[in-house]
């Protein structure tokens, strides 16, 4: 079906090239510059200082040594994203399968019910957990009323994790649902009729059919979770500095744009590596998403 020429796509392609390509080129360029006057912007000189700073530190005596501080921040962001993905999978998988087994006419409504929190402002959703987890919040006072003294919840890593799972859960549910909904239960029934045990049916028939959905869900949670900013910022307090917060600080209070750019490139490289490693998985995922 032709309703126009392919050149109609060029304004959008050009705009994205300008607004995504431009910034990418500029941060590579900025990461190779000296610090700007007063720490805002960049200076005129060219240097690889920003990249050196990622891995080495220099003490007062001028001794240079390996410093893993910043790489550890990157690593803990990856771990937090992995933890978010696993918890979201544990909660999201049964939810998605349950929705796919509801009567046909109810399913779109249940999907909408998962979608509404997904479209709700992340700021509002994160704030909700501040209200719930704070010392005078409904959770603490509820337990207090029955004589249980809860430990501090807000400004902990646990709070960050809860906020992240809450934010990314719909990304997990929707693709798994899309795969589970297409599953033909008659095939499973046939397997049972032919003498397979329910466990075997689950492993050999049900699981391979929903696996692409699970893979897609895991990627859709893991990738944005690595660069999450608001949840660590507002729920983790100073206790869970993640890579996104570190980058934001370099462009803000720490006033070191070249270093911030180098960190942004590190994050971009990590995300790209995850995508490449998961490429086979992503190919399966595309089948579900398209």
């Amino acid at each position: 079906m032709r309703v126009g020429t392919r050149w109609l796509a060029s304004p959008a392609l050009g705009f994205i090239a300008f607004m995504v390509g431009g910034p990418m080129v500029v941060i590579v360029w900025y990461s190779l510059r000296t610090r700007g006057p007063g720490g805002v912007g960049v200076g005129d000189g060219l240097t690889v200082d920003a990249y050196e700073r990622l891995v080495v530190t220099e003490d007062f005596a001028g001794n240079v040594g390996f410093d893993s501080t910043y790489l550890e921040v990157m690593w803990s962001s990856i771990l937090l994203a992995a933890a978010t993905m696993l918890v979201a999978l544990a909660v999201g998988f049964p939810t998605a399968v349950w929705i796919s087994n509801r009567p046909r006419h109810l399913q779109p409504l249940l999907v909408l019910a998962v979608t509404i929190p997904f479209w709700t402002s992340i700021l509002v959703r994160t704030y909700a957990w501040i209200v719930i987890l704070r010392e005078t919040g409904p959770l603490a006072s509820g337990f207090d009323a029955v004589g249980i003294d809860l430990p501090r919840m807000l400004n902990t890593r646990g709070a960050t994790l809860v906020g992240m799972v809450y934010t990314f859960l719909p990304f997990m549910v929707l693709p798994i649902y899309a795969a589970a909904e297409r599953f033909d239960h008659r095939i499973a029934e046939a397997g049972l009729d032919l003498g397979a045990t329910p466990a075997v049916v689950l492993r050999k028939i049900v699981w391979p059919s929903v696996r692409p959905g699970v893979v897609a869900g895991c990627l859709l949670v893991f990738i944005p979770a690595i660069g999450a900013f608001l949840q660590p910022e507002l729920l983790g307090g100073g206790r869970s500095l993640m890579i996104a917060n570190l980058i934001q600080q370099q462009f803000g209070a720490s006033r070191n744009w070249p270093f911030g750019s180098a960190l942004a490139i590190l994050l971009l490289v990590v995300v790209t590596v995850v995508l490449v490693v998961a490429r086979r998985a992503a190919r399966e995922a595309r089948v579900v998403l398209s």
């Binding site: 690595i226 744009w257 942004a264 971009l268």
Partner: peptide, 14 residues
């Protein structure tokens, strides 16, 4: 696909 924080600082720099 690009992490939001990278887009944010990149666009600012741009």
């Amino acid at each position: 696909l690009v992490p939001e924080i990278v887009t944010a600082v990149g666009t600012l720099s741009f």
